[in-house]
Amino acid sequence: MKIKFQLNGQPVEAEAPIDETLLDFLRNRLRITSVKKGCDLGECGTCTVLLNGKPVRSCLLLAVQIDGEDVTTIEGLSKDDNLNPIQEAFVKEYGFQCGFCTPGMILTTKALLDKNPDPSIEDIKIAFEGNLCRCTGYDQIIESVLRAAKLIKR
């Protein structure tokens, strides 16, 4: 089925099989490989994208469900090396190691800070409950979010 949607602020028209997940559609058809497949079951959060500004797991949605909607992937946050404040914060606070969960973490940060510009550590924990990271132990991710909040306010 032909779908039309906004991707990172640009209109996109594409053919999407009715049984294809948004994750496979983004990766295999649109070649947006920043969206990672960690489990394909909605359990790990590596495939997080923003749907109308809210974090969703792209492995649990069908591509056809985004017809007419607005989708943001990490490519929508920055151009070239001009990092978004959230990305800058993740660099400075070492909020990544292997990097596989990082696009999902950064998009979850964006959704959180858009809604709550001054989150407490508890708010951050709740927002990231569904994003697994096996490398960092989470502390430096929390510190990245706190620094991003400060950078954005400035």
């Binding site: 490989t33 497949k37 992937t73 990490i74 920055s78 990305q87 990097g99 950064i106």
Partner: peptide, 23 residues
């Protein structure tokens, strides 16, 4: 010292390529 990691920019922009990203 703490420096900007070699892999930092690629990893926070989603450009870092992992095996299955080599389509």
């Amino acid at each position: 010292k703490n420096v900007i990691r070699v892999d930092a920019i690629e990893k926070v922009t989603g450009r870092a390529k992992y095996t299955t990203d080599f389509i």
